[in-house]
Simulated scan of single mutants.
Amino acid sequence: MTQASLRRLIDLPGVDDLELKALMKPRYADPDAREEFPEIDALTSALFGLTGEAAEAVALPDDWDDIHRLEGADLAEAFEALGWDVTDKRRKPLRLMPHYVLPLALAIRGVAGELPFHVEPDHPATDWGSGLAADAARFRKR
């Protein structure tokens, strides 16, 4: 999968703003801080249809690979394989990934929740029409 085709988690509405708050107040990134900062659950609910608590209550399928237990580069690579870039501009996993990982993984795999709407990029224009125009010009000259 090419880098250009990855969906970037930080580009979703509200994620970058919450990352900035976590930069200013590192306690946001603590997995136990969810109750202290309700905006974390509000964001995961808005993006994936699941709060952290609801995601933890979901019965995981038998073939679940425990992606939510990975950390660092392993976590980023696992999500890249699923089509998502979960890193910041320095290629480090987002500070709040402990809060996003399970709701995002469940939504990607269709177990629970949902992924935010994503507009597919336009297909590049092809030049097949230029050949037709040249043929038409030659035809008119005859």
Rank of each mutant, 00 (worst) to 15 (best):
S45A: 13
S45F: 11
S45N: 11
A46Q: 08
A46V: 05
L47K: 08
G49R: 02
G49F: 07
G49C: 05
L50G: 05
L50Q: 12
L50F: 03
L50N: 04
L50E: 01
T51E: 03
E53H: 15
E53Y: 13
E53W: 14
E53K: 15
A54Q: 15
A54S: 09
A54P: 07
A55K: 12
A55T: 09
A55G: 11
V58C: 15
L60C: 12
L60I: 12
P61D: 09
P61F: 03
P61G: 13
D63E: 13
D63P: 14
D63K: 03
D63H: 15
D63G: 08
W64K: 09
W64N: 11
D66H: 15
D66T: 10
H68M: 06
H68P: 00
R69T: 01
R69C: 03
R69W: 11
L70Y: 08
E71N: 01
E71H: 13
E71I: 14
E71G: 03
G72M: 04
A76W: 05
A76R: 04
A78W: 04
F79E: 01
F79G: 06
F79W: 07
E80W: 13
E80R: 15
E80Q: 10
A81C: 02
A81F: 10
A81V: 00
L82A: 08
G83I: 04
W84S: 06
W84D: 10
D85L: 10
D85R: 11
D85A: 09
V86G: 01
V86D: 06
V86W: 07
T87P: 06
D88N: 15
D88C: 08
D88E: 12
D88M: 09
D88Q: 04
D88I: 13
K89G: 14
R90M: 12
R91V: 09
K92W: 14
P93V: 09
L94M: 02
R95E: 03
R95F: 04
R95C: 05
R95P: 03
L96A: 06
M97S: 02
P98V: 03
H99N: 11
H99P: 02
Y100Q: 07
V101S: 02
V101C: 00
L102G: 01
L102W: 00
P103L: 02
P103G: 11
P103K: 08
P103A: 00
P103D: 12
L104N: 10
L104F: 00
L104I: 11
L104Q: 00
L106P: 08
L106N: 05
L106R: 04
L106E: 08
A107G: 05
I108D: 01
I108R: 10
I108H: 01
I108Q: 06
R109H: 06
G110C: 01
G110R: 04
G110K: 01
V111D: 12
A112Q: 07
A112M: 14
A112P: 06
A112R: 12
G113V: 00
G113Y: 04
E114Y: 10
L115N: 09
L115Y: 06
P116T: 04
F117D: 12
F117T: 09
F117G: 09
F117L: 10
H118L: 05
H118T: 09
H118F: 02
H118W: 08
V119H: 07
V119F: 06
E120L: 13
E120D: 14
